[in-house]
Amino acid sequence: MKILMSLGALVGALGLLLLGGMIFDVVPSNTVRLIEGYMPMQMLFEVGCYVLGFTGLSYMLNAMGLGIPRFWQGIGFWIFLMMYLKYRVYPPIPFSVRAMYGTVALVTVFMWVSANEEDWKKFKQPIMNVLDAQTGMNRLLRYMYLVLLPILIGGFSFNAMMPKSEEPIELRTVHPAPPASTKVHGKTYVLQTSQSPYRVNPEGKYDQEYSNANIVEQGMGRLMKPNANPWDEKNQGYLKYVREGGEIFFQNCHFCHGDNLNGRGLHAFAFNPIPANFTDPGTIAQLQETFIFWRVAKGGIGLPNEGFPWASVMPPWEQHLTVDEIWKVILFEYWHTGYYPRTWD
């Protein structure tokens, strides 16, 4: 047990040093890299390691008679989490999300320190000591709080009410609801039921399973499956159309959406927001192929009212591409990212 706790304490201490280095800009945030494809679990794993590390640290300090009071443990853990989110995770997390996490963390820390009477007494003891002011130090602290707290609250209120020249926040609807049908080049497509005419097997039959089996593998590197190289001239059906879609993509789309389809093309940073990142699981992976067809065909200008504030400069591609070309380019996007279009069974 002691060995485990010592190990935990070591992990906790090292972790704290590392985070301290990141806060004071001595150590870059990406010293321990967040690995693409594993980042969300890595973040949870890291926080879990910190928690176990802190348990070990607490155990060791208690054994040495240097235990940290529960009050400071609670406050310290909350500050740690806030610092972790601000300085460890990159790119920076928007304030609104950090505020949400901070509130949850505050509530859960409260739950922890007040889960039983003994802990709750320990936690509130320093507060009660200051309120009771039995010693000179506590009396001084009480007077300080009496002066500082109103000033602090006043300061926050003033700051909140003060007119600011910052750009206002935007509540952007990234995926507005599509219409039931859309008309492209004179033909009406019902979005719920339409299918890509090019998601076909070598025999020319619509085959979702066949196409799903031939997309690139997700994860690090995004590798092509064996015998599923679209640039093999012998290929027919799905893979042939993926190749044709790729050609269209690199002639028209990659300038903005990037050659890795991650929204970082040559012109991408001229726009804010930058173009959609298709490799993110929150974009095309969440949508039906027909949704993409509608968005590509109609572009930013064709966004519905719900798409406020219409922050998209994508051209209505129906003015430049044929229906077949649009379907093929979508086919390529799914193939390249390793995602499957949403379907309904």
Binding site: S96, E170, N272, I274
Partner: peptide, 26 residues
């Protein structure tokens, strides 16, 4: 999934989807 942010935060994040937290949004 759709985070509330200022245009400056959007720029700093490098796109509408956060590469780490975006995964929690689905």
């Amino acid at each position: 999934h759709t985070m509330v942010m200022t245009p400056a935060e959007l720029k700093a994040m490098g796109g509408q989807q956060h590469p780490v937290l975006g995964n929690y949004g689905v």
